[in-house]
């Protein structure tokens, strides 16, 4: 369970997050949606301790993020950021292997290597395994990064716009992989998504943010109504139902 209490963040006097209180249970997919600058990425990086907390508390499975050793947290929580920039020559396999670092500390066991091969195959980068990251396209690199994050094998995955650069095939595949992980292994994914229909189809819970506040929180059926959507994004859009899931016609 992830517990977020009274979380606020300001950057140079400008408030970015205001009084966020959330409880995220274990198991399932939680989608964070909202317009640009709503504070979604900031919230994710505070949960993942990438930034120091200013006020409030974040607790992962009874472990406060500020005082728990980094290695302990890295075995429970993995984060994929939007802008992974890597210096130096690193092959895809080397990158994905680093996902096992919290467990192996660099001395990888046969199980670690098996997990790496599994992740490489799962995200379709096995045939790119010996290529250097700098020679890959944006989408291929994104898949390598996703594979590394999965490979960390944590109960919680925080993904910041993981569908960036992915084509439809791979975007769908990633969402299905997350769904399977949530259903079969009771793991939890918290994803920042811009494609609201991906959230509608795969998420168990949608948390909508605007101006640093949580403005809606509930199942896709609850949140994805014309009124709530207008409150979040600032314009009205049609919502229909297909196969029992809401479909938002946001582009019309």
């Amino acid at each position: 369970m992830i517990l977020i209490e009274d979380l606020s963040l300001a950057h140079g006097g400008t408030p970015i997050l205001r009084d966020i209180n959330l409880t995220i249970d274990r198991g399932g997919i939680v989608a964070l949606v909202g317009p640009n600058g709503a504070g979604k990425s900031s919230l994710l990086s505070l949960i993942a301790r990438l930034r120091p907390l200013q006020t409030g508390r974040v607790v992962i499975d009874d472990l406060p993020v500020t005082t728990t050793p980094g290695r302990e947290l890295a075995r429970r929580m993995a984060i994929l950021r939007q802008d992974g920039v890597f210096a130096g020559r690193l092959t895809v396999r080397e990158l994905v292997s680093l996902g096992r670092f919290p467990h192996s500390q660099g001395r990888s066991t046969p199980q670690d290597r098996a997990r790496v091969e599994e992740a490489l195959a799962q995200f379709g980068v096995a045939d790119l395994a010996e290529r250097f990251l700098e020679t890959l396209s944006g989408g291929q690199r994104q898949r390598a990064l996703v594979a590394m994050t999965f490979c960390q094998g944590t109960d919680y995955l925080l993904l910041d716009e993981p569908l960036n650069n992915l084509d439809m095939f791979h975007a769908r595949h990633l969402m299905q992989s997350l769904r399977r992980m949530a259903d079969e292994e009771d793991r939890t994914a918290i994803i920042v998504l811009h494609d609201i229909n991906q959230a509608a189809a795969y998420a168990d819970r949608i948390i909508a943010m605007r101006d640093g506040r949580v403005v809606a929180d509930g199942t896709p059926q609850d949140v994805l109504t014309p009124d709530t959507l207008a409150e979040i994004f600032g314009y009205r859009m049609q919502v229909t139902q297909i196969g029992g899931k809401p479909l938002v016609l946001h582009h019309l």
Binding site: G84, V85, F86, G99, F101
Partner: peptide, 21 residues
């Protein structure tokens, strides 16, 4: 520190995510 250095080379955020102080 050789293994830890491999992780540090990924940059601050990725390294923290992998448990580096």
């Amino acid at each position: 520190l050789r293994h830890r250095l491999d992780v540090v080379a990924l940059g601050r955020e990725a390294a923290i995510g992998l448990g580096i102080d």
